[in-house]
């Protein structure tokens, strides 16, 4: 019998000062999938995040300064593409995303022909027990924001998107390459990324999952950032629509 081709898989974790959580998250990923490589993108942490990640068995890409979540993600995409990975899954290094969903997320790409698989908090209600996490509970304003962008994304691409702000995503190699280009909106990449990928002709699918709330640390949506986020997202989506359709090069 012919040996089944095994795709090279990579999990990327963009992190900033997550020295307490990172070891646990890496261990969980390894327990879920032993064949997946793990890369932590340390976005200029000032604590032991990078060392803890290395000691836990992950490869670490270190930014010399704090460049933001989107830049860290794109560094991971560039690493994945340069090192010949076929599949990539991105999840947060703070424990919000349960690594148990990695196989299902990748399965959407491998078996169901999606280019992009998104984890959605709003497709299904489940509540597994977890020793250090609480189930994801966002403020009403935030939920409203997510719903609004979900509505916009759905209306624009003609495909039901329930959680456009989810950072738990998986891509195939074509999409990895697409996002390594300067067209990737690295300043708060969210709903605009979905619209961009759809406009470029990539197939998107959602997977229902449970996510958790941070129980410590600073969210990237703290302070006045939500206001800027809403403005940026509207502008970015509008620009994605009015610009020429991007063509995948790979």
């Amino acid at each position: 019998m012919e040996k089944k081709h095994i795709d090279k898989k990579l999990a990327i974790l963009p992190v900033y000062n997550e020295q307490d959580k990172i070891t646990e998250v890496i261990a969980e990923i390894k327990s879920v999938d032993t064949t997946i490589d793990i890369v932590v993108i340390d976005d200029g942490s000032t604590d032991r995040t990078a060392c803890n990640a290395k000691l836990a068995g992950a490869r670490v890409l270190r930014h010399t300064s704090n460049m933001g979540y989107g830049v860290a993600l794109q560094t991971g995409y560039k690493y994945a593409f340069q090192n010949g990975y076929d599949l990539l899954v991105q999840l947060d290094g703070d424990g919000q995303h349960d690594p148990a969903y990695i196989p299902e997320l990748l399965e959407l790409i491998i078996s169901e022909g999606a280019d992009m698989a998104l984890g959605s908090r709003f497709l299904k209600e489940v509540s597994p027990a977890s020793p250090f996490l609480r189930k994801y509970k966002a403020s009403t304003t935030r939920i409203l924001g997510i719903k609004m962008f979900a509505f916009i994304a759905t209306a624009l691409i003609g495909l039901r998107i329930t959680d456009p702000t989810s950072g738990y995503q998986a891509f195939n190699r074509r999409l990895i390459n697409f996002f390594t280009r300067d067209i990737f909106p690295y300043d708060f990449p969210d709903a605009d990324v979905i619209v961009l990928a759809h406009r470029a002709g990539f197939k998107i699918k959602e997977l229902p999952m449970v996510m958790y709330e941070r129980d410590e640390g600073v969210s990237m949506h703290s302070g006045l950032k939500p206001l800027y986020y809403v403005f940026k997202m509207f502008l970015s989506i509008f620009m994605t629509i009015v610009r020429k359709k991007p063509i995948p090069l790979y």
């Binding site: 993108i41 270190r62 930014h63 340069q82 300067d182």
Partner: peptide, 16 residues
């Protein structure tokens, strides 16, 4: 900003 971003990313990849 774009240029700095690309340099930081390139630097991270080379350091690894």
């Amino acid at each position: 900003t774009d240029q700095v971003k690309n340099l930081v990313q390139e630097n991270a990849l080379l350091r690894e």
